[in-house]
Amino acid sequence: MYEILKKTVWSAQEPRITEFVLNAPEIARAHKAGQFVIIIPRESGERIPLTIADKDAGAGTINILFQEVGASTMLLGSFKEGDRLTHVAGPLGKPTHVEKFGTVVCVGGGVGIAPVHPIAKAMKDAGNKVISILGARTKDLLIYEDLMRKASSEVRITTDDGSYVKKGFVTDELKQMIEVEKIPVDLVVVIGPPIMMKFVCKVTEPHRIKTFASLNTIMVDGTGMCGACRVTVGGKTRFVCVDGPEFDGHEVDYDEMMARQRQYLPEEKQAADICRKKLCHSA
């Protein structure tokens, strides 16, 4: 099980973005949009959460897509087709709340475009008009454009450096849609770096547009047992792995969340350095 059937390198530029198609029939069958898996790449490995970006229930496969930002994702990136991941647990987390809202804007930033994809698809299938805004630092790092076009009635793209379509941030485009074009928006779903989610929520809040943010906190077990993933939402402590990963974006304490995400920076750096030097072995 958990064999890598297909490996695609989306962007060879560092940090590399890689996608795996994994053989995981039972997970594929149970999966709903918004859910994730926890992967342990090797026996001595750590448990890392990755969103299920796509699936083929018939073929019994799931897709995961990750950016090589640290030791574990670099290690994963060194796996080849035919290799097996030691452990994959899932699907975890609550599925996205999907119903007919009207017009749904799906905002994906960077590697966050992949997790937004199944949600866009589910929203479209539920009869919503889906407009997607995809953001990347540069053209080469833009992923899933074709899939997102299939899942949306309209796709808008921004790049930080202007190397593709429009120069700017996803927040600029969202503001333009809401404030200038006056498109009536019923729901915004946003996945990306916390700072981006924070600012997307700042755009939607004055207009009282319901906004779901999918949080990517540090996790250990992913089953509600440890509390490593806790965040403050609406003044209450919630566990992202079981109460989320999606929350009312206007209620999330992003500053606390960002501080908590930085907890292991020195250790992460140390591990990444070791990985770079020896290329951590996947045994």
Binding site: R42, S44, G45, E46
Partner: peptide, 15 residues
């Protein structure tokens, strides 16, 4: 469970 007391030999960190 994660053997973090043996970090970085094991991948999970602990402070």
């Amino acid at each position: 469970l994660m053997k973090a007391f043996r970090f970085p030999e094991f991948d999970t960190p602990i402070k």
